[in-house]
């Protein structure tokens, strides 16, 4: 079954690269200009009508975001992944929210978390998860999470000693038992 899908896609997009193939699973990589076209073809003529997820991976060493549209053909129980690399700087990706309304939520999330812009999404820029975030998008790999957390949320001052007797000795009282005292004397 998936062979038929593969052949059909290879005829329409001769430049595609095969990433992985299983009996009901196909992962292909296409050029960024052909990405939206490939997703649309999969929906309209190959029966992949469900959009499961749009995911992004920050390939900082390639200077690109890898976007993957995960589509499902529920009748045939087949899954098709279409990946494309988009340049990291001022990343602009065509929006699919007119075709799948559900895509709008994924696109808004990617805009917040990675700063990927989807022109054509009417709700782009609305608050999704991070309310009023003004910093760099936090899922980018050049975002210094630990430094940011320390700067924003602070740290509890650590204890000066690590000996629990200092802190719980009076409360628990177990440290004052003869056994505890004996152990101390032995040292």
């Amino acid at each position: 079954m998936i062979d038929k899908v593969k052949k059909e896609l290879e005829i329409r997009f001769p430049l595609l690269k095969l990433v992985r193939e299983q009996h009901n699973y196909l992962h292909i990589k296409v050029d960024k200009a052909a990405a939206a076209d490939a997703v649309l073809t999969a929906k309209t003529s190959l029966g992949f009508t469900t959009l499961q997820l749009i995911s992004a991976v920050d390939r900082i060493e390639n200077g690109a975001f890898q976007l993957t549209w995960i589509l499902e053909n529920y009748d045939e129980q087949e899954i098709l992944l279409i990946s494309a690399y988009f340049p990291r700087k001022n990343c602009v990706v065509p929006s699919l929210s007119q075709i799948w309304p559900a895509a709008s939520a994924f696109e808004r999330e990617l805009f917040e978390m990675f700063g990927i812009s989807f022109p054509g999404n009417p709700r782009e820029g609305e608050d999704f998860l991070l309310e009023g975030w003004k910093d760099m998008p936090p899922m980018r790999r050049d975002f210094e999470t630990e430094e940011y957390a320390r700067r924003t949320f602070g740290e509890r001052q650590p204890r000066e000693h690590t000996d629990p007797r200092q802190y719980i000795g009076d409360v628990v009282g177990e440290w004052n038992t003869p056994m505890g005292r004996n152990r101390e004397e032995e040292k």
């Binding site: 975002f143 999470t145 957390a149 320390r150 602070g154 740290e155 509890r156």
Partner: peptide, 19 residues
């Protein structure tokens, strides 16, 4: 809630609740 726990370096989870 005491000191951030395993989310001490998260961008979105606060570390010291009693502030």
């Amino acid at each position: 809630t005491i000191n951030g726990g395993m989310y001490f370096d998260s961008y979105n989870t606060l570390n010291v609740l009693d502030k």
